[in-house]
Design a protein around this nucleic acid. Structure first.
Length: 483
RNA sequence: CGGGGAGUGGCGCAGCCUGGUCAGCGCGCCUGCCUUGGGAGCAGGAGGUCGUCGGUUCAAAUCCGACCUCCCCGACCA
């Protein structure tokens, strides 16, 4: 973007240094700030509002699918965590421990939950006795702690907020269906509300959740061409029900272990919204999750307080009445031009300018954040018009994100071309793969792009030869550099 | 966790090599006037134990050590 077109000059251009842009934008828009402890951040009101929207919109969907919310303890006794070997080994490097309570050393140390399969499994064992108790469909909104070595606001922090679903079923088939149903709920939610298209797939065995039979995930492409995992859903099989003794008596009076699933999305989604939709001028929020959907800026000229301001206030009331998240920026210490730039940086989808001319004509100037084009709209029937414009913006952002994903997803079975593509444009690369871990390792070593997922949708290259070794491929894989 | 870089008013930085009127600049902030349709102007003003702790020295933002935090690259990562 040419310098004179960069109306918001407070932020580094995204195209120049993506990482710097990301960190800068998050702090300048007051979404989050660093806390004094390594890897921890404060989610400020402007960022937390996005999380609240995510919670509201996803919670609605989970409940519609029969799930209910509950809350389990933050601490997990070490012995509980250790019951499932793959689980404890998978999480060992990143568990924080409590060893002291008050002045006394604890007899058994307590893990600060890195995830809640263990504690919830132990409770399921108490609650489930009969097939009539099934299925159990529980969700929890909670904070968790993972002692990560490399952290980044929203994308990976030591403590973060998420939603974790835990279900128990009578049959494997039911659990498998639940795992995939949830993946679809996530995909629809992320696409509809966050305006981010994703690719669904299965994780490789060495990349799956510690303690799961299979892990599925959704991958999205950030605008710097790197992949980000947006959510995961695990088919846990009977691994946890075996060790925690979660048994029920079936219709034939036989004792059986339940089949379980677990799944989650986190505050990382907020980082994805920033990285997918943001531009050189700052954030661009999809209206569905925007902290502020509409900002009204009165043009302060002449006798504006008596002429313009009352009209601006009435517009605000009208929009509030229509359930729109609206702010009236009537601060006197800033010029209109300054406010335009400021709210653009903050990603507000729609701006309404109201000046003396507009008041006279019974109109307002509407400017969509995604296109930044001005249009005069009549003041009567504003709520309807605004809602329509917000819908257009929501759809426009999704359209752009889809186009970007399509442009940056390429199919190749030629390793040399693969290397060139990864180097020049990154993105998703769909390539045939033989199933061997060594082959992924080789590709990852040489290109920094690993296998994100094995996509669930149809394989356009079923008869391929492995990218790395040339043997017959078992599947196509989505390769990408990732966060 | 390994390699590299950085920490100086709210933000962005200069000063450090060569210790001593170096506590400095831009933006922001406060007061007043004047302005306001794309980050206005003028005048005046406030604000910093130079990341923390320790050491060297007559004297430390500056030299040395440890620690904390951030950034980049790599390893690791439901």
């Amino acid at each position: 973007m040419a310098e004179e077109e960069r109306l918001v000059k407070q932020v580094s251009p995204k195209s120049e240094d993506f990482s710097k842009w990301y960190l800068e934008i998050i702090r300048k828009t007051e979404m989050a700030d660093y806390a004094p402890m390594k890897g921890m951040m404060v989610i400020r009101p402007y960022g937390y509002a996005v999380w609240e929207s995510i919670q509201r919109l996803l919670d609605r969907r989970l409940k519609a699918a029969g799930h209910v919310n509950a809350y389990f303890p933050l601490f997990i006794p070490e012995s509980f965590l250790q019951k499932e070997m793959a689980h404890v080994e998978g999480f060992a490097p990143e568990v924080a421990w409590v060893t002291q309570g008050g002045r006394e050393e604890l007899e058994e140390r307590l893990a600060v939950r890195p995830t809640s399969e263990a504690i919830i499994g132990s409770m399921f064992a108490k609650w489930i006795k009969s097939y009539r108790d099934l299925p159990v469909l529980i969700n929890q909104w909670a904070n968790i702690v993972r002692w990560e070595k490399v952290t980044r606001p929203f994308l990976r922090t030591t403590e973060f907020l998420w939603q974790e679903g835990h279900t128990a079923h009578a049959t494997e088939e039911e659990a498998r269906k639940e795992t995939l149903d949830i993946l679809n709920i996530y995909r629809e939610f992320i696409e509809t509300e966050l305006a981010i298209p994703t690719v669904a797939g299965r994780k490789t065995d060495w990349d799956k959740f510690a303690g799961a039979l299979q892990t599925y995930s959704l991958e999205a492409l950030m605008s710097d061409g790197k992949a980000l995992q947006m959510g995961t859903s695990h088919h846990l099989g009977q691994n946890f029900s075996n060790v925690f003794g979660i048994r029920f008596e079936d219709q034939n009076q036989a004792l059986q272990h339940v089949w379980q699933t677990s799944w989650g999305v986190s505050t990382r989604l907020i980082g994805a919204v920033v990285m997918v939709h943001g531009d050189d001028s700052g954030l661009r929020f999809p209206p569905a999750v925007a902290p502020v959907q509409v900002v009204i800026i009165p043009i302060s000229m002449g006798d504006w307080k008596n002429t313009v301001l009352p009209v601006a206030r009435r517009i605000k009331e009208d929009l509030l009445g229509a359930g729109i998240r609206v702010t009236l920026d009537d601060r006197e210490e800033f010029t209109p031009g300054w406010k335009f730039s400021d709210w653009e940086m903050r990603g507000v989808p729609l701006r309404l300018e109201v000046g003396p001319r507009d008041v006279k004509e019974g109109k307002a100037v509407a400017v969509k954040r995604d296109e930044r084009r001005k249009a005069s709209i009549p003041m009567d029937s504003l709520p309807e018009t605004v809602n329509r414009l917000l819908d257009e913006i929501q759809a426009g952002l999704l359209r752009q994100a889809r186009a970007f994903l399509a442009d940056n997803t390429r199919v190749t079975d030629d390793y040399e071309e693969f290397k060139r593509l990864v180097e020049s444009r990154r993105g998703f690369l769909l390539s045939p793969w033989c199933g061997a871990r060594e082959c992924e390792e080789k590709v990852k070593q040489e290109t920094a792009a690993g296998i994100r997922i094995l996509p669930l949708d149809e394989d356009p290259m079923p008869e391929g030869r492995c990218l790395a070794c040339g043997r017959k491929s078992v599947s196509r894989a989505v390769f990408a550099r990732a966060y």
